[in-house]
C-alpha cells in the first residue's frame, strides 16, 4: 500500500478548497535504467474526489503528471467538520483512499 495522501480542505467563502498531495512515483515509461532497459510506466490513472458520497471531481491522468502529484480544486458548499474523500487508482491496479475533515 502506498503512503497516505496529504489532504487539506478549507472553507473559503461559500465553497471548499481542497488541496491534495499524493505520494506516487509517476514513472513515465520513457526513462531507461543504467543497463539501458526501459523502466516500465507506473502512474496514477484516475483520481476521484467525493464529498458526502457525491463526486466533486473526476480526473484521468497520464504519466506527464509530476512525481508526488499535487492537485487543488474548489467546490461549492461544504461545511466545517464534514468529510472529503479522495481515491486514486494507478495503472497496476493499486489504489488508495484517504479522507480529510473540512476545516
Amino acid at each position: 500500500m502506498a503512503d497516505p495522501m496529504k489532504i487539506r480542505a478549507n472553507v473559503v467563502g461559500d465553497s471548499t478548497e481542497v488541496k491534495v498531495l499524493m505520494s506516487h512515483e509517476m514513472e513515465t515509461g520513457q526513462r531507461k535504467d543504467a543497463q539501458g532497459k526501459t523502466i516500465p510506466a507506473w502512474f496514477i490513472q484516475t483520481v476521484t474526489a467525493t464529498y458526502n458520497g457525491k463526486p466533486v471531481l473526476n480526473a484521468q491522468w497520464g504519466p506527464a503528471v509530476s512525481k508526488n502529484p499535487f492537485l487543488s480544486f474548489k467546490f461549492k458548499g461544504g461545511a466545517k467538520g464534514e468529510k472529503v474523500q479522495v481515491t486514486w487508482v494507478d495503472n497496476r491496479g493499486d489504489k488508495r483512499t484517504d479522507e480529510a475533515t473540512i476545516a
Binding site: 465553497s15 457525491k54 463526486p55 466533486v56 471531481l57 473526476n58 480526473a59 484521468q60 491522468w61 497520464g62 506527464a64 503528471v65 509530476s66 502529484p69 499535487f70 492537485l71 487543488s72 480544486f73 474548489k74 467546490f75 461549492k76 458548499g77
Partner: peptide, 16 residues
Amino acid sequence: AAVFDVPAGTEPSLST
C-alpha cells in the same frame, strides 16, 4: 497530460 471532469457545483478552476 490530464483530463478533469468537473461536475456541477465544482468550480472550473484547478491546478496541478
